[in-house]
Amino acid sequence: MVQFAQQVINGMSLGSIYALVALGYTMVYGIIKLINFAHGEMYMIGAFLSFYLITTFKLPFFLALLISMVLTALLGFVIERIAYKPLRNATRIAALITAIGVSFLLQYSTMFLVGADIKVFPEGFTNRTFNLLGVGISLKQILIFSVTAVLMVALNTLVNKSKIGRSMRAVSADKEAAALMGIDVDRTIAITFALGAALAAAAGSLVGMYYNTISPLMGVTPGLKAFVAAVFGGIGHIKGAMLGGFAIGLIETLVVGVGYSLMKDALVFFVLIVVLIVKPSGLLGKGGREKV
């Protein structure tokens, strides 16, 4: 039982990371119906920016996290403007192929600039493990939970209460009507990309701190898994992405705990295929009909 509780704690911390990345997928998909394949690379770039801010500029972790989020958000904004905006009215396949292109471009440009080797992320503080009724929870895990919680509450407030959040929801519901109501659609979409990128950067930095290693290809698998999480929870729903992230994190950790660590990636994709067949709209999705 204690063992199980321990796995749940570990699964939840991994799930927090997936949830943060999944939020970006779900927001972008909700607003322009594009699977942003390059989203996993935002996570990777966020981690690298934090790494350099901490090692080269000797900044404390939290400050590095914040600056990395801002810079990655800017990058997300710029990428949207250059690569995706010209394709607003193109076919879905064209947009998808572009996203794959952007993803590879970011991966290999990073590799070109910093080298392909794995880098050791500095600890920055002494990690301790607290004992709660025999279940260990480390300072790092507490940090992940608290940062994730703060960001999620902030995002929820932003989307539901602020003006930009309202325009995001309006564009997601009906782009043309939103434009007629005086909403700057292009700006809203770009801001959505930037927000998603910032969340992914936070996740990347947290992962760097948690596992202590980062590499240019670190974003590929977590990116895909976070996408699965977004679909699992119901793509386009912010709460669904959070739920899905935690669920995928838990599933993965429990599978490893039972001893099938080599199969964990296959299992996540298997979950995806099952979800897509049984309930394509996801846990919280309403399942609309395709219009003719």
């Binding site: 699977i35 080599l262 990636d265 296959a266 298997f270 995806l272 067949i277 394509p280």
Partner: peptide
């Protein structure tokens, strides 16, 4: 048979997942 019921992007991810499953097996 199951995945081709999906459209565009979902299909891309599902086939990508299937390719990965084959590789992991």
């Amino acid at each position: 048979i199951p995945t081709l019921r999906l459209k565009g992007d979902y299909l891309a991810i599902a086939t990508l997942g299937s390719g990965e499953i084959i590789r992991i097996i």
